[in-house]
Design a protein around this nucleic acid. Structure first.
Lengths: 250, 250
DNA sequence: CGGAGAGTTGACAAAAGTCAAACACGGTGG
DNA sequence: CCACCGTGTTTGACTTTTGTCAACTCTCCG
């Protein structure tokens, strides 16, 4: 298991940054804003913070209220898995935005840790929302956005951290869940894609897909005939994803 | 090279769907909307379309104006690389949202192709924007969102489709560009992360990172001493990413 | 000067890719 | 109705890439 952990957080003082002469103000605000608008908005909804090396900018699960923009310094963001596996899913430097994954569920989806002493700007998410009736719709689409970001984050975990067995088990379980949500059978369904398409999706080759399906069949985890999939042992599929050692074992 | 292409698009007729009795209406609209609000908004900004198997829902580069929600059927989305390499970055089924990557630059960032005859709902992006002054800010943050989605899409390409040499070349070039944008030297910089962190990010091990750096040094592509990187042959690094065959060749 | 953490390197093992042959299966046309 | 074709799938033999484990080196700091 790779150690990508950060130190426990310490005190985080305020930084002395002003938005109106910030060289990366175009990251935080649209160019079309007048000088006065920018001043007003930044006064109302922007704060600044210093984060020292090794400190957490935010923790996965922590309540979301601000989007962060890196003013100076360097961060890593980490996604953790239930079994303790963790993987870096991004490095952020000056001008990069952190925390977009927090909007979907009002809590951050990854840990972010400073790799050197850094300054960040906090943009208060609640105050940049509009007051009109369309606000609801915007809020809604922000969540859609954020969910897509989380999905892609999970995709990087899968592609960067899993072997072929794990990837395919994860794929099957994911599909099973999605079918169940739509009130279709979670244990018996047809794939709509070819093996080649599946291979492209999972960063594998179709030969490996085939072999792994065969392997899963031989261990009575699933039954397949062509595109039809029957999941026999959901729990074992899950354990393959979570526990690397099992993967080799069977 | 994997063939994940779709057929050339044909005629795409309208589908007969109504939002107010749609089982997945909560995907397109927030729950808090009244029945009347939902009716008004859907009348104003939602259209429907049938896409037959093999047809494109949208092309990368095509002008963006709507977000798509899958009503029924199955899609694949594909990201293409300059050199012709292509990779599937997602499968979408009923309730999944397509096209969020189009907001950043007003054009879609990936091809989306139907794997079976499907119905989609088009949500007109322009009409769901608010009219207040805060509109600019929202529009701005939508772009920030969308850019993050595109970054993660590119990450899945890297993790799913590249070998160690390509991943590391891509990482160095990406970092070089980002430093250049911030008016730092693009050819000489310090890494802020350990080899272990880099390995976690790229889905490799630190041993492989080290070996690849050494290999790059031996071929005069870069010079390293500890965390300091000097890029000697940017063009060759680029060609490693783009051309698989070169990767083996040197 | 010594110790800790980070980085490099070597020997070997395991995973996945490559290439090619064989097989399955659905659709089409004789 | 059946032979044939094309597309997709499975499987085998072999190769390449990357991982694993461990030893060794380097560098920075106290």
């Amino acid at each position: 298991m790779i150690n990508v952990k950060g130190k426990s957080p310490k005190h985080s003082p305020q930084a002395g940054i002003r938005c109106d002469d910030c060289p990366i103000q175009n990251v935080c605000f649209p160019k079309e804003l007048s000088h006065q608008e920018l001043k007003d908005i930044s006064a109302a909804s922007v704060k600044h913070r210093i984060v020292h090396q090794g400190e957490f900018l935010c923790h996965a699960g922590e309540r979301f209220s601000s989007i962060y923009v890196v003013h100076s310094g360097f961060f890593k963001s980490i996604k953790r898995f239930y079994n303790g596996y963790e993987q870096i899913i991004g490095f952020q430097m000056s001008g990069d935005v952190i925390g977009l994954d927090g909007i979907a569920s009002n809590s951050f989806a990854s840990d972010v840790i400073a790799l050197e002493t850094s300054e960040v700007c906090l943009i208060d998410y609640t105050t940049i929302e509009s007051d009109t009736t369309v606000k609801k719709l915007h809020r809604h689409f922000d969540k859609v956005f954020s969910r897509e970001i989380i999905r892609l984050q999970n995709m990087t975990l899968l592609l960067g951290g899993m072997n072929a067995n794990q990837k395919i088990a994860a794929f099957l379980i994911n599909l099973s869940k999605r079918f169940e949500k739509l009130s279709y059978s979670p244990s018996e369904f047809y794939l709509r894609m070819t093996r080649v398409e599946l291979a492209s999706y999972l960063g594998l080759t179709n030969a490996t897909i085939s072999r792994t399906f065969t392997q899963f069949k031989n261990h009575d985890l699933i039954k397949t005939s062509g595109r039809k999939i029957i999941i026999h042992d959901y729990e074992k599929l899950l354990s393959i994803i979570l526990d690397n050692s099992l993967t080799q074992g069977f």
